[in-house]
Nucleic acid binder design. Structure first.
Length: 284
DNA sequence: AACAGTACCCCGTTTACGTCA
DNA sequence: TATGACGTAAACGGGGTACTG
C-alpha cells in the first residue's frame, strides 16, 4: 500500500477504526476514555478530521475566494478555538482550575474538542494564570518596598535629628562635670532621664557606667555612617533572611529569583520588621 | 515490598497562527 | 498586496508523582 499525503486521511481513519476495535476488546471501559485522548488516538482522530476538513475547505475556497480569505478561513477553523469555546473554558476555569476527568469529558463533548485538547488548554491556562499572578505579586512587593523605603528615609532623618540632640545634651552634661561640683552632676544626670524638649524620652546613664555609654555613642555614630545597606539590613532584620536582603537590593526591578517568591509573603515585609524590630531599637 | 503501567501535573520548548509595520 | 518580525495560543515531550493491580 502506497501512502501519500492525499491517502493519509483514509489511512489514518482505517488505523483509527482498527485501534477502536482492539481497544474495545482489550481495555477496561473506564480506562478507554483517556487512552482515546492520547497519542496515536488523538493524532488519528483530530488530524485526520482536521486535515480532511481543511482539505475540503481548501477545495471549496480555492475556486471562489482570494488566497488571503482562504488562509483566514482555513486558519480560523484549523487552530484557534472559537470565542464560545474559550468562553466556556474560561468559565469552567474560574470555578475550578483543575478539571475532574468526568467534567473534562463532558466539556470536551459540549465544545466539540478532544479531551486532550481540553486538558492541554487547562494546563496552558494555569501556566498563563501563574505568570500573571507573579506579575501581580511583584507589583505588590514593589509597592510595599517603595513605601517602606520612604518610611525608612523619614526615620533616618528623624534619627539624625535625635542624635544631634543627644550630642548636645551630652556636651551639656560633660561641661558641668568639669566645672560644677559632684552634687550638681547627679542633678544633671537625673534631669536627663526626664522627657526631652521635643517629646522623646531619651535615656542616658553616664553616672552608672560611663564607658558603655561611650561605646554606645560610638556605635550610634558608626550606624550613622550612611551605610544604608547595613542599616537597612539591621533594621529589617535581614541578616537572618538573605533572600529578603537580596530582594531589597534588587527591588529596582531586577528580582532574579522568582522561585523564591512563593515563599515570600509580602505582608511579612511589613509585619516582621515592625513587630519584631522597633525603630527606636536602632540605639537601644 | 517491589514493580510495571497509567494518568496527570508542571515546565520548557516547538509549532503555527494573527497582527502590524 | 506581499512580507518579515513578533507575540501568543495550541500542542508536544520529558521528568516527576500518585495510584492501582
Amino acid at each position: 500500500m502506497h501512502i501519500t499525503w492525499h491517502t493519509l486521511p483514509k489511512t489514518k481513519n482505517l488505523l483509527a477504526s482498527c485501534l477502536e476495535g482492539l481497544l474495545s476488546r482489550s481495555i477496561h471501559p473506564e480506562s478507554q476514555r483517556d487512552v482515546r485522548s492520547y497519542g496515536i488516538f488523538s493524532f488519528l482522530h483530530s488530524h485526520s478530521h482536521s486535515h480532511s476538513a481543511a482539505a475540503a475547505e481548501a477545495e471549496t475556497f480555492s475556486s471562489t475566494s482570494s488566497p488571503a480569505a482562504m488562509r483566514k478561513k482555513k486558519s480560523k477553523n484549523k487552530r484557534r478555538f472559537s470565542h464560545e469555546q474559550i468562553k466556556s473554558l474560561e468559565t469552567m476555569f474560574e470555578s475550578e482550575t483543575r478539571l475532574e476527568p468526568r467534567k473534562k469529558l463532558q466539556l470536551a463533548r459540549e465544545l466539540g474538542l478532544q479531551p486532550r485538547q481540553v486538558a492541554i488548554w487547562f494546563q496552558n491556562k494555569r501556566a498563563r494564570w501563574k505568570s500573571k499572578q507573579l506579575e501581580r505579586d511583584y507589583s505588590i512587593l514593589l509597592t510595599n518596598y517603595n513605601s517602606l523605603a520612604s518610611r525608612f528615609d523619614a526615620l533616618k532623618k528623624e534619627k539624625q535629628a535625635l542624635l544631634l540632640q543627644l550630642q548636645k545634651l551630652k556636651d551639656l552634661t560633660q561641661k558641668p562635670q568639669e566645672q560644677i561640683q559632684p552634687s550638681a552632676q547627679v542633678k544633671a544626670a537625673t534631669s536627663m532621664d526626664s522627657e526631652s524638649e521635643n517629646g522623646y524620652n531619651i535615656k542616658c546613664q553616664p553616672e552608672l557606667n560611663p564607658s558603655p555609654s561611650t561605646e554606645r555613642s560610638e556605635h550610634v555614630l558608626g550606624v550613622l555612617s550612611d551605610d544604608d545597606s547595613s542599616i537597612k539590613a539591621e533594621y529589617f532584620g535581614l541578616e537572618e533572611e538573605p533572600s529578603l536582603l537580596n530582594l531589597v537590593k534588587h527591588a529596582d526591578g531586577s528580582l532574579t529569583s522568582p522561585e523564591d517568591w512563593g515563599t515570600l509573603d509580602s505582608n511579612d515585609l511589613l509585619g516582621q520588621s515592625t513587630s519584631d524590630y522597633q525603630w527606636w531599637d536602632f540605639w537601644s
